[in-house]
Structures are given as C-alpha cells and as structure tokens.
Simulated scan of single mutants.
Amino acid sequence: MVMNRIFRRFILSALTLIVLAAGVALGSASAAAADLSDFRWEHRPLLLFAPTDSDPRLVETLGRIDASRCEFVDRDMVIGTVVAQGNSTLDDQALNADESQRLAAQYAIGENTFSVLLIGKDGGEKLRVNDVPDLHTIYAVIDGMQMRSREMRADPGRC
C-alpha cells in the first residue's frame, strides 16, 4: 500500500513536470517572433534598421511602402523593423530586444545606424541602402532575379 502511494506521487509529479514543460515550450513558441529562416523560399524580407521607431527615415520608408503596397505584396515581401529603442517587429510579430540585437549583429548594423536590407527568398542579402530607399530600385533588383522572372511568367501580377 505504501509503495502504491509512492508510485502514484511519482507519476503525478512526473505528469505535472511534463505539463509545465509543455506549457512553457508552447507559450514561448507562440510568443516568439518569426525567425528570418521562417520566410526562406516564401517571402523576401525588407529589414529596416533605425535608432528608434520614430526615426523620420523609418517613418518615411514605411509611408513609401504603404503607398506602393500592391507592388510590395506582389513581390512576396514582408517588413522587418529593427530598432535600438522602441518596438521592433518582423512581419507584424513583435521582436524582443535580444532578437533585435541578434539581427543587428548578424548584419553588422550599428546602434545609431539607419539601413535598409533586402533579403532574398534564398536568405541571402541582395541589397543594402543606408538612406531612405527608392522602392523602384528595390523592385527593379527583385524583378531582375531569376526566381522573380519565373514568378512573373507564372502569375503576371495584380498591379
């Protein structure tokens, strides 16, 4: 009888630990922002690095993207805003400070630097601009890619 009670406690404790571990894992996975590798072969991230989320160059760039939203979406692009101070996002998912710092370090972006990086569907850096970008130039770079040529032949686009 005593062994039965000890065995039940052991099983109950083990199940509790499993449930807690699963809850932590699922909770952190759903709260974590998407990683760039999540977009590989599906989307072209446009990463906007700025000192703050209210930087005038960032605000202007986002306004330009909104003004050409159809062309942006037609090229399977997603936006990542990575800021030293403020709210960073990747495809509308919040990035925490560690994730923002990791991206800045990965692409060698200084803390007070404004920079725009186009990442291809293959995950490689395709273009880097250190000022408010001309989106037509970015779109031309994309349209010159072999993968984009195939996409345009398969679906001429909506814009």
Rank of each mutant, 00 (worst) to 15 (best):
K121A: 09
A32D: 10
H43V: 15
L117I: 04
M147D: 04
T61W: 00
S54T: 13
D91P: 03
E111F: 09
L95F: 06
E60A: 03
G120F: 07
L20F: 10
A34V: 14
S13V: 04
V73G: 14
R57K: 10
V78H: 04
L26P: 06
R150F: 06
D92C: 05
D98C: 14
I18F: 12
G144D: 15
G27P: 10
S115T: 00
L95N: 10
N130D: 08
S88F: 05
G86M: 11
L26G: 15
T137S: 08
H136S: 14
P133V: 00
K126T: 01
M152L: 15
T89M: 06
I142G: 05
I142A: 05
I79R: 14
P156D: 08
A108K: 14
T61G: 02
D74I: 08
F10D: 08
V24P: 11
A67W: 07
F49D: 00
N130M: 02
I109F: 00
S100P: 04
P45H: 02
E42V: 04
F39Q: 14
A22D: 05
V78Y: 05
N87E: 12
R64L: 15
W41N: 10
G86T: 13
V73M: 15
E151R: 04
T89C: 04
R102P: 05
P156S: 08
N87Q: 15
G157H: 07
D53F: 00
L15C: 03
F10G: 10
G144F: 02
N112I: 10
L20E: 06
M145E: 05
E111K: 09
G63M: 12
R64F: 09
L12M: 14
R148L: 12
E71C: 13
M145F: 07
A105I: 03
M1N: 06
R44P: 08
H43P: 13
P156L: 08
I142Y: 03
D38W: 13
S30E: 12
R8Y: 12
Q146S: 10
F39I: 12
D53M: 02
S28I: 13
V2G: 11
A154N: 13
L103P: 06
D155T: 11
G86N: 08
A67V: 08
P51S: 03
A140T: 09
D53L: 02
Q101D: 12
E111D: 13
M1Q: 13
R69G: 07
A108F: 09
R57W: 01
I65Y: 07
I6V: 13
S115Y: 02
N130P: 00
A154M: 12
L62Y: 01
V24R: 06
F39C: 15
Q106V: 00
G120C: 03
P156F: 06
I119D: 08
L62G: 04
A29Q: 12
R69M: 13
N112D: 12
G123F: 01
P51Y: 03
